[in-house]
Structure formats: C-alpha cells, structure tokens
Nucleic acid binder design. Structure first.
Lengths: 225, 225
DNA sequence: GCAACTCCAATTGTCGACAAAGTTGGCAAA
DNA sequence: TTTGCCAACTTTGTCGACAATTGGAGTTGC
C-alpha cells in the first residue's frame, strides 16, 4: 500500500488518509461536493479535524476549495492529466538518471525480481489489471527511492502525487498496455544495471510519454461514447 | 510579489500567507517552534484557523509537524537544498523546453525587457542584491508561465515551492553571481527566441546547476566559519 | 410566462472550553 | 552528587455552539 501509515495519532491525519483513499479509488466521484458535517459524522469525529484534513488534501491537490463554498473533489480533465504526465516525465526521468548511479546492485536485482513477479501475474491474470497497476506504481516508486532524493520520493510517492494513483484507478480498467509497459520496464532496468543514466532517463521519459498517449486515446474513446 | 493574494476570505488563508512570509523572509528562524496559542493571539484569531494554516504550510513543506508535539519551521540543510535544486533542474528544464514552443513573440520580448531592467538595477545597485533575487524569481516564473502547464506553474511559482524563495533570502546577501546569471538568462531568452527548446532546456539546467554550485560553496564557507 | 426579489434553510467560518498528551521542575533515595 | 520518579504546568487535540455567508425556494411584479 502506497498510502502512508493508515493510522497514526491524530484524527485529522486519519481523516486525511481515509479521504485520500476514497478519492483515489473513485469512491468519491470527481467534482463531488464534500460536506463537512456529513463526513465528520461518517468518520465519527468533529468538524475541526476534518477541516484540517481538507486543508491537507487541498495541498495534495486532491480537493479544490473555494472560500465560503466548501470543498470539491478535483476533476481530472484532459488538460490536467496532460500537465500531470509532463511533470511526471521530468521528475521520473531525473529520478531514473540519478538512480542509475546511486542504486546498489542488490536493489537493481530486486527491481528485476519485481518485474518477474509482474510477468507471472500478467500471465495468470484474468481481469486483475488493478494489481498490475499498483505494481507499476511500485516499480516507479522503487526507482524514485533509488534516486536517494527525499523530495523526489515525496513528490512521486507517498505524500504529494496521489493524483497519479487517482488517474490510474480511472484508467486501469481497460488497460491493454501491460505487456509493452513490462517490456519497457525491463529495458529501463537493463540500463540501470549498465549504469547508463542518460539512457535510463530517456527510456523512462519515452515510457511515460507512451503511457500518456495510451491514456489520451482512451479519453478520446470515452468522449466519443 | 509572488506570494498569492495577501488577503482573501478566510482567516486561515490569511494566517497561511502571513506565516509563509515570515518563514520565507527568515523572520521566523529555521527549526523554531511554532506555538499555536501565541501565534493565534498575535494574528488576532482563534486557534482553529491557525491550525488549518499550519496544515496548509505542512503541505507546502514550510513546516514540519509531529503529532502531539507541535509544528516547527523546516530546516534547510545541505541535503534538502541539494534535493531541491535537483528537482528544480528537472522541472524548470522541462518548462523551458515547452516554453520555447508555446510562448508568443511578445512574451519573449517582455522577458528580454525584464532582463534589461535587471541590468540597470545591477549597474546602479549598491547592496540591493535582494531586488535582483526577487527579479530572478520573476524571470523563472515567467518561463514557467510560458509552458502553459498549470501544474508546473503551481510547483515553480505561487503555491508549492516557497522553499526556493526561503533559500534565496538566506543566500542572497553575499551573492556575487548576479552578472554571470544575467548573462545566462540572456542566452536562454535567445534560445527561446530561436524556438530551440532543446538548447533552452540545456541552458536552463546548466544555469540551475551553476546556481547550486555557487550556493553549495557558500554553505561550505559558512560551515568553515 | 419570465425575471427579480426576499426570505429561509443549509453550510461554512470562527471561537471558547474541555480532554489528553507531553514537558519540566523538584524532591527523595541510592 | 546523581538518578529516577512524581506532580504540576504547558501545549496540543477535540468538541460543541454561535455567527456569517451562500444558495435556493417561493413569491410577487411586470
């Protein structure tokens, strides 16, 4: 689970995690109004902690607040997603380049093993693309960790960037792209193993560009229907 | 002023801005404990809005909270700054590449005019490096705007990223680097005018690497003393 | 029939008070 | 003198109530 510590100290943090999860999984629809009193009751807490949670989620860009008019779940329109993937390309490309010089041989080996696991999962899957999607995030996060850059790790992984997971949940249903993605992942690991940072960055950027094209086409089809 | 709307609706937002400003300018020292009751009184508001503001600042990475132990101003140690500049290199490089194809001729012309203004400011300066520092941020933010990518703009400009301004305030006092920086800025504008995105990205990345080296050396000197 | 106005309910913003956790200082025993 | 424990104080976390603003329903006038 990539959502940070599900339970910890304060109610506000708990509410943050619950809400983030509900938003990411789509349990709370995009653009939906978030009623403070109702949510507070559902979580069994007062409105104070819940308001703090909303402020935190606002910082995460998962909700959008307008003064005196409450908070709404963010809507991932085409432009927002496009912007997101551009940022991702820049950040993950950088992470990959650094990881090539910073990761230990052991870590790269584990990354390779992770891909083996994905491969068997895909082979025996059925409709469990969801697992692959989460696994894909794992792969990318491991590389972010490999950069030894805490800010990159925060932005790409735990805290910031839940937007990406949200996007995944929406689009992973009919993702036909698992096999080419896996192949690209293997290429990236190979470049990392060769300690070729420039190549690794380039492969990662192309990988993300490809993912965006795939998602973009999917949105086109959805809009046509 | 790059801090977004100083006064707007709610007290919590107001407190957010005031606190952000105090932290960025160093009025609140790094690592300083933030006492809720005291701050609430100073701002003339209850603790509720102030707590929300702290949550927001936590999302901005300007304060660090530990449950049941309050919030402290973040400390910019060497590693954090290094990570920050790496992220900046990736994001601003990307912004610059896109801006080369997206900015209008008029915008590029204005950018060039901005640099002219900086040049005269530097010539007649004295010790007013501060103004140049803010001006430098302006330059970088204009390029972010040129990318037409709202997420990049948020990350590099208004909301997120006040960390950078904080760093600037700390290091701008004895910045000897204004002249080479201006020259690099001009090169970047030239690349933008030529619509050469790849070159513009490369120049921007080198520019930021140079800035980091300069700051890194400054930290070395400070640590030696 | 449509527009605009008014009033009302619902929702957000704010405050003060209480509960819980953490911190500090002093006191006693080794 | 040092060390460990205990108690009081400080600070954070939480709740309920009140004020202010908004959005909408209903009504009235044109």
């Amino acid at each position: 689970m990539l959502i940070p510590q599900p339970q910890q100290g304060t109610l506000a943090d708990l509410a943050t995690h619950k809400l983030a999860h509900s938003i990411v999984t789509g349990e709370l629809a995009q653009g939906q109004k978030l009623n403070e009193a109702e949510l507070a009751e559902r979580f069994g807490m007062g409105r104070g902690p819940l308001r703090e949670a909303l402020r935190h989620l606002e910082g995460m860009r998962l909700v959008k607040r307008t003064p005196n008019a409450g908070a709404r779940v963010v809507v991932l329109d085409r432009k927002t997603l496009s912007d997101l993937y551009t940022v991702r390309e820049a950040l993950e490309g950088m992470a990959c380049r650094i990881a090539a010089t910073q990761m230990s041989d052991d870590e790269i080996e584990q990354l390779s093993a992770l891909l083996d696991k994905h491969e068997t999962q895909i082979a025996e899957q059925g409709g469990k693309v969801y697992a692959q999607s989460e696994g894909d995030l794992d792969f990318h996060y491991q590389i972010a960790r490999g950069s030894r850059n805490q800010m990159l790790m925060d932005m790409l992984g735990s805290e910031q960037y839940q937007l990406l997971r949200m996007c995944r949940y929406r689009t992973s249903r009919n993702a036909q792209r698992t096999k080419p993605a896996l192949s690209q992942h293997r290429q990236i690991v190979q470049a990392l193993a060769n300690r070729d940072g420039e190549l690794a960055e380039m492969l990662m950027r192309r990988h993300i560009q490809g993912a965006w094209r795939s998602i973009s086409e999917m949105i086109d089809r959805e809009e046509a229907a």
